[in-house]
Computed example of a mutant assay.
Amino acid sequence: MTSRVYLVSPATSASLRQARFDDGGSIDDAGAVRARAAAGSLPSAVRVLLSPSVRCRETAAALGLDGTAVPELAGLDVGRWRGRTLDEVGAAEPEAVGRWLADPDCAPHGGESVSGFCARVAGWLSGGAFADGRTVAVVEPEVVRAVVVQVLGPPLSAFWRLDVPPLAVTELSGRSGRWNLRVGQPLNPAGAASAP
């Protein structure tokens, strides 16, 4: 049986707009309005999963989804950089940021390396929990990046080359070990036609 997994990125928030590492803040009013307008536009699902962040939980609620938070879907742990902008960190620790962006095994912030994060998400993806139909997962943008890297198999440096806009859907079809991708579909208001 072919499984389908719909990864939905969270609605806009102050931290997303400011290129700030997630600070645990809420989605903004505009993001909530867009998410509520898109409620009902996703296919029905056997299960709804969430990154445990505030913005993913609030996005799911605005979309009318009741889901379960999954620890393996937590965003990349950036340690002491949490809540700061990349520009702030780059000004204070330029060498550390340079190493972090160039070496997927590096974690100068004291949190999680990109390679460790991608391995965590890959473990979730290969866990076989999708054998019985559709799954909708509202997840952090970096979770979507890690899934795309896992499915397509490029070097880990490709992680930084993937942009994930707010309220975009990345669809996986297939099964563990053999997934196909449809990337970055905008989540349209319910009843609106999607682009081909």
Rank of each mutant, 00 (worst) to 15 (best):
T68P: 12
R84T: 14
D77E: 08
V148N: 09
V89R: 01
G123P: 05
P104K: 04
L16Q: 11
D103E: 14
W160K: 07
T2H: 08
R17S: 09
A62E: 00
V54N: 01
V136I: 15
G67M: 05
S13V: 01
C106L: 11
L65G: 05
P166Q: 05
E140K: 00
A158I: 07
A62I: 01
A195T: 14
R161N: 14
G24D: 14
R178A: 13
V136M: 08
V54C: 06
W124V: 02
A35P: 00
S51R: 06
S53V: 12
I27Y: 04
C56W: 01
A91W: 15
G64M: 11
L42W: 03
G116D: 13
P155H: 06
P189L: 06
S51V: 02
R34W: 00
G67R: 02
L42Y: 10
E88R: 00
L162W: 02
G110Y: 07
W160C: 10
R134T: 13
L50Y: 05
V5S: 00
A129P: 08
S173N: 05
S173I: 13
G64K: 09
A30S: 13
A129N: 09
G90R: 04
L125D: 00
A107K: 06
W160S: 09
V121R: 01
F159V: 09
L125N: 01
F21N: 00
V138L: 03
A74P: 08
R84Y: 12
A192L: 14
W160D: 12
R161I: 14
R120Q: 12
S53A: 15
A195K: 15
S51Q: 11
L16S: 11
C106R: 06
A96S: 12
L73Q: 02
A92N: 07
L156T: 11
V148M: 10
A38T: 02
G127V: 08
A190L: 13
A14P: 02
G133W: 07
L181H: 05
T85S: 02
A32C: 10
D23E: 14
S44N: 13
S157G: 15
V33A: 14
R161F: 08
S173V: 14
A193G: 15
D28N: 09
Q185D: 09
G24K: 03
L86I: 15
D28H: 05
V121A: 13
R17V: 01
Q185T: 14
R178T: 05
P154A: 02
L49R: 07
F159G: 01
G128N: 04
P189Y: 12
P165V: 08
R134D: 06
F21C: 00
P196N: 04
D163P: 02
L65N: 08
G75R: 04
R57K: 08
V169H: 01
V54I: 15
L73T: 02
S13Q: 11
A119E: 15
G64H: 12
L162S: 13
S41P: 07
A119K: 07
E95D: 14
L187E: 01
V54P: 00
A37N: 08
W100Y: 15
